[in-house]
């Protein structure tokens, strides 16, 4: 065997090994690329599917069914008081919000009187965001029960009963529908099969979500948010602290020289201090 021949053999073997190494490197690279591709596809597919599914699942911003007598362009507002009252009090409240409870307990007699005198109409936005941070369903179910009461023409009374029986914020008793139905028994004329079914079936759940989404998009971040003719009055109006006396004073000042609304035109029971007899007026649509 010649020297030359031996050398040639070695070269051939080297070349073969080089080629094999290159092939293996290529295969490894391809595998990496394939894995990277699979990862990218999985992530992209998940995101696309997620957006589509959540879009499908989310409740519309304009509700398909709203309680009778609601107002606003999407029927998200529950008005109490005469529609032609010269002043408007706008109130954003969550059924579970403790500050709303204390606001209601100190102010509801005054607010009721102002409504009954035709001085104000109160636009309630019943929001439900406390469930998000604390878990549970008390805000949502409570808001739905209020919508049911509005539908039955007993919003004001049920609203007062609810806030007088408000649990601790962390205690989710409004998340129990039976509790909400039992509270309805304290309002004459409200404890009907329709009301019970409305609470149990969460009939206005879509509406409740729409009201909350509207609040989400607003610039208000907490409850209670209270505005008198568009101006924030809670906890202060300018430098002046809100109080029942100050609220009356502010309303009277705003109403100066204006025609008062038709008293009691919303079919709710009158304010506690009013002398009018209690009556179960039919709901005004």
């Amino acid at each position: 065997m010649s020297e030359k021949n031996r050398e040639g053999k070695r070269n051939a073997r080297d070349k073969m090994m080089e080629a094999r190494a290159a092939e293996e490197a290529k295969a490894r690279r391809n595998k990496k690329l394939a894995v990277g591709g699979v990862v990218a596809v999985v992530i992209a597919a998940a995101v696309v599917v997620g957006v589509v599914v959540q879009n499908e699942r989310s409740k519309p911003e304009a509700p398909t069914a709203a309680p009778a007598g609601t107002t606003g362009d999407k029927n998200l507002v529950i008005p109490v008081g005469s529609a032609d009252a010269p002043s408007t009090l706008t109130v954003y409240e969550d059924p579970r919000c403790p500050a709303c409870g204390s606001f209601e307990r100190s102010f509801s007699p005054t607010v009721d009187q102002l409504e009954d005198a035709g001085k104000i109409v109160v636009n309630y936005h019943i929001v439900s965001f406390i469930d998000r941070s604390l878990g549970g369903n008390g805000s949502k179910y409570g808001a739905n029960a209020l919508a049911c009461a509005q539908d039955a023409g007993h919003f004001r009374d049920y609203h007062d009963v609810m806030y007088r029986n408000q649990p601790e914020e962390t205690e989710d008793s409004f998340g129990d529908k039976q509790t909400l139905i039992d509270l309805g028994k304290q309002v004459p004329g409200l404890d009907t099969p329709e009301f019970r079914a409305c609470v149990n079936d969460n009939e206005f759940g879509g509406w409740v979500s729409a009201v909350q989404q509207d609040f989400d998009k607003s610039s208000f971040k907490s409850t209670p948010t209270v505005l008198l003719n568009g101006e924030l009055v809670y906890p202060k109006k300018g430098d002046e602290q809100i109080s029942p006396e100050n609220l009356v004073k502010w309303v009277d000042a705003a109403n100066q020289g204006k025609q008062l609304g038709t008293p009691g035109s919303h079919g709710q029971s009158p304010a506690p201090t009013s002398t009018a007899a209690e009556s179960d007026n039919p709901p005004s649509p």
């Binding site: 998940a46 599914v53 959540q54």
Partner: peptide, 24 residues
């Protein structure tokens, strides 16, 4: 706001799945 709010949880779930599998 909505695309991110809706897509992000599924991105997180996809990452969780891939990590459980140990793929890529």
């Amino acid at each position: 706001v909505k695309p991110v709010g809706w897509g992000l949880p599924f991105l997180e779930l996809a990452l969780a799945l891939l990590l459980v599998l140990g793929l890529g």
